[in-house]
Design a protein around this nucleic acid. Structure first.
Length: 493
RNA sequence: GCGAAAGUAGCUCAGCUGGUAGAGCGCGACCUUGCCAAGGUCGAGGUCGCGGGUUCGAACCCCGUCUUUCGCUCCA
């Protein structure tokens, strides 16, 4: 058990090192020692991530003729977050007990105290507490709130002590100001989820696109949460990217669609190369304020099975809430049943960065090749060819005798069809390894025979086997293998 | 947030009781070679995370701080 923990810890460390060394993920602002829970994608990481986003977006919008995309702004009207429940849910003054390590809402502790006093017939005292607390909170004077808790000798119900930390305002939303003059400026939030951009555009899309229920709106975009604790590399970041689809359905049919999307999404993860036994559903015991059913798709990360995607039946919570606050009807007239209603919503929401991490962890392969004295450790990234950052590396066997020029010529022939790289430095074996380490599925070598008969060898990353083929067939052969169509075919099965 | 460990070259790390910085790999140029991390020569690259303190002198001791990893905690 002890060993296993060490193994999994080092597995993640190896992947983090590899990600940095080979240009996938760098700590943000690295030269300034990084910024907690913020990361940048490097030259290979951005290719992989873009491929993931593309395959998701196409799987949503091209494979389903009733799903369309949008790209909503990160800034939204502040009332959006009032309607969604984020403003109320995430503005709590919190306090920790140092002995029990339990965290409480400071206002709740004081309210309970006041209620207890009232029961004892000390209504005046109770009122004084509530007034002092309100004054402190309104003024943002958290130290006063803490002092109040200490003065009242409120103890932690678990540890029974009054050993409290400072009171801190926990707000998961980042805020900033819109407007150049600060007095005129209004507080605005960086969106903590992309979903609301879809909800507020529901009618715009439905009317302009003449969409009929059921239909979906898909979106990829950044979201921001001021996480208290961020852990596990890019698993929980302050700035992250979501790939979301909100599917609008007739009330009463939501559970069928919930089931359908559950299965569809699981199939997707398997189609892009994640093994079935590393994926599982995890039903939520405790439902969020907006949901009547919720399940996570979890992936077996080196630190355990963790949420990668959430599928929620959100009822009409969001649209109804927006309707109330905006006073604009969010209804759909269903011609089939001749009725107006606020649609129910089934949401699929996957973290692009989490999916990236899952794909990277899954791809990282250490294997022993050769036997006896020839035995060697080999590391490669086993990406689905359609996801790999670089599809093919063209390598001249040697630099001289015109082989380099011939190889360059070949690069120019294929580089517009798929991401191609050229490498002439060092021994051929080293160059194969360089490509293995970033997960390039194919290496094409120009050798002396090429000069005579226009054939090259093509080497497969996983098997290391080579095959000699004609240059004329190269584009088609590689193009077929690296196309996302192979993934879509699996989804349609 | 609490507790633990770590931070030295691009990477992995060594560096003794405090005495002005090392290896392997990688990287660049050239020579040799030519199908799975080849050999040789030369070279670039570090105010030892950062800031203080102690000391004649600090990578090393002390304090603070930042970052990362791990365990709790938290996660609409």
């Amino acid at each position: 058990m002890e060993n296993k923990k060490q193994d999994t810890a080092s597995a993640l460390k190896d992947i983090i090192s590899h990600a940095k060394e080979y240009g996938f993920v760098f700590p943000s602002s690295d030269i300034y020692d990084g910024l907690q829970a913020v990361y940048d994608y490097g030259q290979n990481g951005v290719e992989l991530k873009n491929n993931l986003k593309t395959v998701w977006y196409k799987a949503m919008t091209m494979l389903n003729d009733n799903v369309v995309g949008i790209d909503a702004a990160i800034f939204m009207h502040p009332l959006t977050w009032k309607a969604s429940g984020h403003v109320d849910s995430f503005n709590d003054p919190m306090i920790d007990n140092k002995d029990s390590k339990k965290r409480y809402r400071a206002d709740t502790l004081l309210e309970e105290r006041a209620a207890a006093l009232e029961d004892e017939g000390k209504a005046d005292e109770a009122r004084a507490i509530m007034q002092a607390m309100a004054k402190g909170l309104d003024a943002g004077d958290l130290e006063a709130v803490r002092q109040l808790i200490i003065d009242q000798q409120i103890k932690c119900p678990v540890s029974g002590t009054a050993n409290w930390t400072e009171v801190r305002q926990f707000n998961l939303m980042f805020s900033t100001q819109v407007g150049a003059v600060s007095e005129d400026a209004s507080l605005i939030y960086l969106r903590p989820e992309t979903a609301q951009g879809i909800f507020v555009n529901f009618l715009n899309v439905q009317k302009s696109g003449r969409m009929k229920i059921p239909f979906g709106i898909a979106q990829i975009g950044k979201a921001f949460r001021n996480e208290i604790v961020a852990r596990n590399f890019i698993f929980r970041m302050r700035e992250f990217e979501q790939m979301e689809m909100q599917f609008f359905v007739r009330p009463g049919t939501e559970m069928e669609w919930y089931e359908t999307w559950k299965q569809t999404r699981m199939k997707f993860h398997q189609a892009i190369g994640l093994p079935a036994d590393s994926l599982k559903f995890h039903d939520h015991d405790k439902l969020a304020h907006y949901a009547n059913a919720a399940v996570d798709i979890e992936y077996k990360f080196p630190f355990g099975f963790k949420e990668m995607e959430g599928i929620h039946s959100r009822t009409d919570f969001d649209l109804r809430s927006h309707q109330e606050l905006s006073r604009k009807k969010q209804q759909y007239f269903d011609p089939e049943i001749n009725e107006n209603y606020i649609p129910y919503v089934v949401e699929t929401s996957v973290g692009a960065d989490r999916l990236f991490l899952a794909i990277l962890c899954n791809a990282y392969t250490e294997e022993t090749v050769g036997e006896g004295d020839q035995e060697k450790q080999r590391i490669y990234l086993n990406f689905h060819p359609a996801l790999a950052p670089v599809k093919v590396a063209v390598l001249p066997l040697v630099k001289k005798d015109g082989l380099a020029e011939k190889a360059q010529e070949l690069v120019n022939k294929i580089k517009f069809a798929f991401h191609t790289t050229y490498d002439e430095g060092g021994a051929i074996g080293k160059r194969y390894t360089r490509q293995d380490l970033i997960g390039t599925p194919y290496c094409v070598v120009v050798d002396y025979q090429t000069m005579e008969d226009e054939t090259v060898t093509i080497r497969d990353r996983n098997t290391m086997q080579q095959e000699r083929i004609s240059i004329a067939d190269l584009k088609e052969k590689i193009g077929y293998a690296v196309s996302m169509e192979r993934i879509f075919e699996k989804l349609l099965q």
